[in-house]
Nucleic acid binder design. Structure first.
Length: 309
DNA sequence: AACACGGGGTT
DNA sequence: AACCCAGTGTT
């Protein structure tokens, strides 16, 4: 890499840190007194979920279960029920498993090593680095969807980020990571915040961007991407929607319901559901209920199905 | 590499 | 109605 390019990248990091220090949003998990557990909970809730939806749920969880031991002592059914409609309810099960593992294997304290964090359920490449950096000031490379987009644009001049690839992403972000842990944290959080606030997927606000003058995508006059974004499956009529409806039934019935009655309790979906057209609504509902049991989101005893204890 | 996995906000 | 969102685990 040329000396000039090296200098450009250093300047990008410096300006993002300055911008973030002055313009970051106030979130409770960014307060200095926030515990590592609070940060871990915020990161798990934030997976594929907008901050505006996370904040109230985070307050509720921290009030109910201020430490890992508190959550580990609660029935997983209660964590699932409180998770409510935040989405991907397996995260609730996994968060409860995290709490249990932290109590049993780490003396009730969230571990600070990235590898130890990575070993916890639902903690992957992103969350392990985020908790290590934000809660413990470790110099770990954080890469989320915002950062992949910011780097694709500012560094590489591409409109759309490459597909996530933990090894390559880690290596790329590591090259930019400041050696000072406090600055590494500010760069990690700042690049993420810049992508969320100033440089979103649609309509980037280059006029207020601190690195507009250094941005390669802007220098090339915003070429459209050559790659195509991954299409998303329809939600209406999908298995995901039906699973969600079964979970809603289970949350509403603490004592559980007759397994065979599930199809009647779940609102029948639109007839044009597209997939699985050759099996009945009742069959499909019962099959998905079995999946939920396998995923730890429900248990079945005798003829009844309910949230797990 | 491609999917499945929720549900709601945004355009 | 399509796209997007502080991802993870499986195939």
């Amino acid at each position: 890499m040329s000396l000039r390019e090296r200098s450009r990248r250093t300047e990008i990091v410096d300006r993002v840190i300055d911008w973030f220090s002055a313009n970051q949003r106030d979130f409770p998990w960014r307060e200095p007194e926030c515990s590592p557990w609070g940060i871990l909970v915020s990161e798990v809730m934030s997976q594929q979920t907008q901050m505006s939806r996370v904040e109230p749920k985070w307050h509720e969880f921290m009030s109910l279960w201020p430490t890992p031991a508190d959550m580990a002592a609660a029935p997983v059914a209660e964590v699932i029920r409180r998770w409510d409609r935040l989405g991907y309810p397996r995260r609730a099960v996994n968060l409860h498993r995290c709490a249990t593992a932290i109590v049993e294997n780490h003396g009730g304290e969230v571990p600070s090593d990235r590898d130890a964090l990575l070993a916890l359920p639902a903690i992957g490449a992103y969350t392990s680095a985020a908790v290590a950096s934000f809660a413990f000031l470790r110099c770990e490379p954080v890469v989320d969807t915002n950062i992949r987009r910011v780097l694709a644009r500012a560094i590489h001049g591409e409109a759309i980020a490459w597909d996530a690839n933990p090894r390559r992403d880690d290596a790329e972000m590591s090259e930019l990571l400041p050696e000072d842990p406090q600055r590494a944290k500010l760069w990690n959080a700042g690049a993420m915040e810049l992508g969320a606030i100033v440089c979103p997927s649609k309509k980037p606000q280059c006029e207020v961007c601190p690195i507009a003058q250094l941005c390669e995508w802007r220098a090339r006059n915003y070429p459209a991407s050559t790659r195509k974004a991954r299409g998303q499956a329809k939600f209406a009529g999908s298995d995901r929607q039906l699973r969600g409806r079964v979970m809603a039934i289970l949350r509403r019935h603490p004592e559980g319901v007759l397994f065979d009655s599930l199809p009647d309790l779940v609102e029948p979906l639109a007839a044009d559901s597209g997939t699985s057209v050759d099996i009945s609504h009742a069959e499909r509902t019962l099959l998905l209920a079995e999946d939920l049991i396998r995923d730890g989101l429900a248990t079945r005893a005798a003829e009844r199905i309910r949230l797990p204890h």
